[in-house]
Amino acid sequence: MMILVVGGSGSGKSSYAEEMAVSLARENVNEITMKKYYLATMQIFDKEGRDRVERHRNLRKGKGFLTIEQPTGIFGALEKMETGDRTVLLECISNLTANEMFSEEKAKTKMQVMEDIICGIKLLKEQTTHFVVVSNNVFEDGIIYDETTTEYIHAMGMINHKLAALADWVVEVVAGIPVIIK
């Protein structure tokens, strides 16, 4: 089962996605709690970044997630996991997209970024029992940005489209409330 969770800044999408991953991992036919992995994509550059990661770590505390740092090349996380039943939570597509786009000296095009990310997502979907993906709604501030940011927004739009098509469920989190889209 693959679930896409989208939402804006401070919407409560992360805690909702974590709850989903925890409850999916529990629904195991063998009654053995399956392994839960958290794929962290954020690169830390400053105190704010550290605080953000710390807040998320605290949210996850005691829920039994094993954290894998995977800021780019998301499929690489697969070889860091044990085989067998596993639930994977990927947070989040907006960081991953920015990292993929801007890590190298020359920015990748939106098509290239979309293809790379979706290819990795498909592999993860195939090779996991449950896969929860968190993405961000970055589309509704009405601001016209520079060319690079516009390219990023378009990449995010295309990726969200593809993710929604791949997902069994799509949920938008609004003020902490899940609104089912698919």
């Binding site: 939402g7 804006g8 800044s9 401070g10 919407s11 409560g12 704010e48 907006s94 709604n137 970055v138 589309f139 509704e140 501030d141 009405g142 601001i143 940005y145 940011t149 990023y152 927004i153 609004v174 003020a175």
Partner: peptide, 21 residues
């Protein structure tokens, strides 16, 4: 609803969106 956009570069604006959310 003010959180559905690109994360602002300005720290106050970033904090504002998150706190409202």
């Amino acid at each position: 609803e003010i959180g559905n956009g690109i994360i602002p570069i300005e720290p106050f604006e970033r904090e504002y969106r998150e706190r409202v959310g």
